[in-house]
């Protein structure tokens, strides 16, 4: 009798990787892109402008880093979002579960396409 393999471990692994990445750099990154960059621009200091970001993302490391960051954060959020529904007592079902992960994966694919086009 063959036993069906669970797809939970890799999903939890990705979730955990996203959580780790978020814990290490997300607060600093959010404050930087959301507050420091626009406030600096008001004072005439250009940070993360089109040319420098374009150059940064054309390097393999920069492109890989942004794709990994976006994909892992989206997967982390999708996984937690689905489990949050369960913890609130809402039985969302397998279709919603697949939808959560599919949406996150679609975001990751979109990010990959974007850096390939650059």
């Amino acid at each position: 009798m063959s036993m069906q393999r669970s797809n939970e471990p890799p999903l939890w692994l990705l979730f955990s990787a996203g959580g780790t990445l978020a814990a290490l750099i997300a607060p600093a990154l959010i404050l930087y892109t959301g507050w420091v960059v626009p406030l600096a621009e008001r004072r005439g200091v250009e940070l993360l402008d089109y040319e420098s970001l374009h150059a940064l993302l054309q390097s393999g490391v920069g492109a890989a880093a942004i794709v990994v960051l976006i994909t892992l954060l989206l997967l982390h959020s999708a996984h937690r979002g689905y489990h949050l529904l369960h913890d609130l007592g809402i039985d969302a079902g397998p279709r919603a579960r697949r939808g959560c992960y599919a949406a996150a994966a679609a975001g990751g694919i979109a990010a990959t396409l974007a850096v390939v086009v650059l």
Binding site: I66, I70, L118
Partner: peptide
């Protein structure tokens, strides 16, 4: 349990931020 749920819910804002970064990346492309 409430604190645990708040901790879980933080991931939704992280996800929205990732989406916003994705929009920026697509705009850059």
């Amino acid at each position: 349990y409430q604190r645990y749920l708040v901790r879980e819910a933080t991931s939704l804002l992280l996800g929205l931020y990732a989406l916003w970064l994705l929009v920026g990346l697509l705009a850059l492309a």
